[in-house]
Nucleic acid binder design. Structure first.
Length: 121
DNA sequence: CGTCTGACGCACG
DNA sequence: GCGTGCGCCAGAC
């Protein structure tokens, strides 16, 4: 049954589109880890399309399966997308629920928690 | 078609 | 280390 859902998902979403590649990589980010827009862009093969990654994630709210967009921050570990989660503190709370410490709108120990899709995928 | 818009990242001063 | 400028490119008009 899960297999059928997966097939339906692939039929409903052109799986080779830029957006879908972003979603697919984002879904692989482990709980309690984070990555950056640029890292995802590089993994796709468009290192200069980091802005598009953000654009894609902005539209990921109603996408299934769910996309953990809150685990994507900018290259400095800054929560630049926090205003797109309904409330301004939703993104922070989602990350803290996974054990990530946020201070001054920034991920503490970002270098340690950073998950590189190129290396890990 | 042209133009504008960004959840970015880099180069430079 | 910080501010500024610019290239990036898929959608929405």
């Amino acid at each position: 049954m899960r297999h059928l859902n997966f097939i339906t998902f692939n039929l409903m979403n052109s799986s080779d589109s830029f957006f879908e590649q972003v979603y697919e990589i984002t879904r692989h980010i482990p709980v309690g880890r984070v990555t950056s827009f640029g890292a995802i862009a590089r993994c796709i093969g468009s290192p200069q399309s980091a802005r598009m990654v953000g654009w894609a994630l902005n539209k990921s709210g109603n996408v299934l399966p769910p996309v953990p967009a809150h685990r994507v921050v900018n290259r400095n570990g800054l929560l630049t997308g926090k205003h797109h989660f309904g409330g301004s503190e939703i993104m922070k709370e989602l990350l803290e629920n996974e054990g990530i410490i946020i201070s001054e709108n920034q991920v503490v120990d970002f270098g340690k928690l950073f998950w590189d899709p190129m290396k890990e995928l």
